[in-house]
Simulated assay, not measured.
Amino acid sequence: MNLKKSLLTLGLIFSIALVAPAQQFRALVFSKTAGFRHQSISDAVVALKKMGKTHVFSVYTTEDASVFTDENLAKYDVVILTTTTGTIFNAEQKAAFQKFVQSGKGVVGIHSATDTEYEWPWYNKMIGAYFLSHPAQQTLRLEVVDQNHPATWHLPKNWLWTDELYEFREINPDIKVLVKADESTYKVAKGNGDNHPMAWYHDFDGGRVFYTALGHVESAWEDPDFLKHLYGGIWYAATGHPMK
């Protein structure tokens, strides 16, 4: 009887393995902070794990920078810098991260990923800009200037949004802007003027990079439009599929 039960259990496990979906790609969600820590990080990690289940990609979450080695990063297709801050990598980890990008892999930056690694010029060019300032949380008009990217396919031309609204310095002129802030619709801190990018992408050093400044507020991580926006960027960075 025990043998029959064992065989039945093995058969069930085998059947489940046969029907389990293959993962599209593997994502490393990295949320280490060495500066300000956002309360929304825990919401982000939960949402990204759920996103992985919904869209059939694997998610590994950590705040341990020691995972940034050549051998370990080779397991992943995309690194998602989830509201990181400050100096979070040592020299060896920086070198491994650069090799990861140069091998044709993807990077996604969320919100304060631009408030990270201020003394690393490669990182500045890769992520696309550095954080400058922000006013109080407000509602504004976001202008979707490029609807031909998977991060913006679903968005209207005018997107009403409430968040902590980043302003930037040292903006890489090679980034391709997807979404801009309309500064006439809210009170700025220092401002970026008519060209105030809030989401962008670009090919960089052999890899693909997507960044969105949104995601400070916890409610963003339950918002369907934001989550579709983010998943489109992740899918692009991880797979490199052509945009239509």
Score class of each variant (00 low, 15 high):
residue 137 Q to P: 05
residue 208 R to D: 11
residue 142 L to V: 12
residue 129 A to T: 08
residue 154 H to N: 13
residue 180 K to M: 05
residue 94 K to V: 02
residue 173 P to C: 09
residue 227 L to C: 11
residue 13 I to V: 11
residue 41 I to V: 15
residue 120 W to S: 09
residue 67 V to T: 09
residue 23 Q to W: 09
residue 4 K to N: 13
residue 69 T to M: 02
residue 119 E to T: 09
residue 144 V to T: 12
residue 216 H to I: 15
residue 231 Y to F: 07
residue 139 T to S: 07
residue 63 E to W: 12
residue 96 A to D: 08
residue 48 L to K: 09
residue 62 T to Q: 01
residue 91 A to K: 14
residue 85 T to M: 05
residue 119 E to V: 07
residue 78 V to Y: 08
residue 206 G to P: 12
residue 83 T to E: 03
residue 72 N to R: 03
residue 38 H to I: 02
residue 218 E to I: 07
residue 171 I to P: 05
residue 231 Y to S: 11
residue 75 K to Y: 11
residue 200 W to A: 08
residue 93 Q to T: 15
residue 67 V to G: 13
residue 176 K to S: 15
residue 41 I to C: 13
residue 91 A to G: 06
residue 61 T to W: 07
residue 102 Q to M: 10
residue 213 A to L: 12
residue 205 D to K: 08
residue 18 L to R: 07
residue 203 D to C: 00
residue 130 Y to Q: 00
residue 238 A to F: 10
residue 6 S to K: 09
residue 185 T to A: 07
residue 55 H to Y: 14
residue 205 D to G: 06
residue 26 R to I: 04
residue 91 A to M: 06
residue 221 W to L: 12
residue 218 E to Y: 01
residue 80 I to W: 03
residue 147 Q to M: 14
residue 154 H to T: 15
residue 37 R to G: 07
residue 124 N to S: 13
residue 226 F to Q: 02
residue 115 D to P: 03
residue 38 H to E: 10
residue 78 V to A: 09
residue 56 V to M: 07
residue 113 A to M: 05
residue 140 L to P: 02
residue 55 H to W: 06
residue 165 L to V: 04
residue 177 V to I: 14
residue 120 W to C: 12
residue 49 K to L: 11
residue 154 H to L: 14
residue 108 V to Y: 00
residue 153 W to A: 02
residue 105 K to V: 10
residue 40 S to R: 09
residue 15 S to E: 01
residue 61 T to P: 06
residue 27 A to G: 14
residue 184 S to Y: 14
residue 11 G to L: 12
residue 108 V to G: 03
residue 186 Y to C: 09
residue 49 K to C: 04
residue 135 P to V: 01
residue 89 F to V: 14
residue 103 S to M: 04
residue 55 H to M: 14
